Simulated scan of single mutants.
Amino acid sequence: MKNQLDESKPIFLQIKEQLEDSVINESIKQGERVPSTNEFASYYQINPATAAKGINELVHEGILVKRRGVGMFVTEHAKTILIKKRKKTFYDNYMLPLKSEARKLHISKEELLEMVNREGNNSYED
């Protein structure tokens, strides 16, 4: 768990994203138990309902599964689901605006690919 939460976004989203990142980077593997809402609440000194909101969203998305009396566990396909979701978000948030700006600047696909593949020198002169 991260040492502290910040004010940049709602706490439940930070908990949700922290769990997502842990599944993607496999610090929490499929089938493993994740911290409970009470563990999150105690660690971060927050209301358990706040932690539950982030965890419940992951249950709804098929990332976690509740096992009554035992806890929350990472599902078999959690990493695949998260990577697919993050790729779509990446495309929507970065690629679509990039392509739109490239069209405005009359940058061809070839030039754009060249820019993406360029290493080192970050300047572009043309």
Rank of each mutant, 00 (worst) to 15 (best):
D92F: 01
L113Q: 06
L96P: 00
K85G: 02
M95Y: 03
L96W: 02
R118W: 00
E110L: 06
K85M: 11
H77F: 13
L98A: 09
L82D: 05
E101S: 08
D92N: 10
I81P: 06
V116W: 04
D92I: 02
G120F: 02
N122H: 09
H77R: 10
T89K: 08
H77D: 15
F90R: 01
E101H: 09
E114Q: 05
R103C: 06
L112F: 05
K87S: 13
F90S: 00
L96C: 00
E76G: 06
V74G: 10
E111Y: 00
K88Y: 07
L96M: 08
T75V: 13
N93P: 00
K104L: 15
F73N: 14
H77V: 07
R118A: 07
Y94N: 09
H77P: 00
L105P: 02
K79D: 07
E114Y: 04
K104H: 12
L98G: 03
H77E: 14
L105V: 05
K99L: 15
H106T: 12
R103N: 13
M95G: 00
R86K: 13
V74P: 10
K87Y: 12
E119K: 15
R118L: 00
E76N: 14
L96S: 03
L113C: 02
I107M: 11
Y91G: 00
I107F: 12
T75N: 05
I107E: 01
I107P: 04
T89D: 14
V74R: 08
V116Q: 02
L112C: 03
D92A: 05
I107D: 02
T89R: 06
V116G: 01
K88Q: 13
S108D: 06
V116F: 11
T80R: 15
E110F: 01
T80Y: 12
H106V: 09
T80H: 12
L112V: 01
Y94S: 04
N121K: 12
E110I: 07
T75D: 04
K88R: 14
E76V: 10
H77Q: 12
M115A: 05
F73S: 14
K87Q: 11
L105R: 13
L112T: 00
L105N: 13
P97T: 09
L98W: 01
H106E: 13
E114S: 05
F90I: 10
S100R: 10
E101V: 15
M95W: 06
G120T: 01
K109N: 14
I81N: 06
N93W: 01
V74A: 09
R103Y: 11
L112D: 02
K85D: 10
F73P: 12
K88C: 06
E111I: 01
L96G: 00
D92V: 01
R118I: 01
F90W: 10
M95V: 13
I107G: 03
T89Y: 02
K87F: 14
I83M: 11
K87D: 10
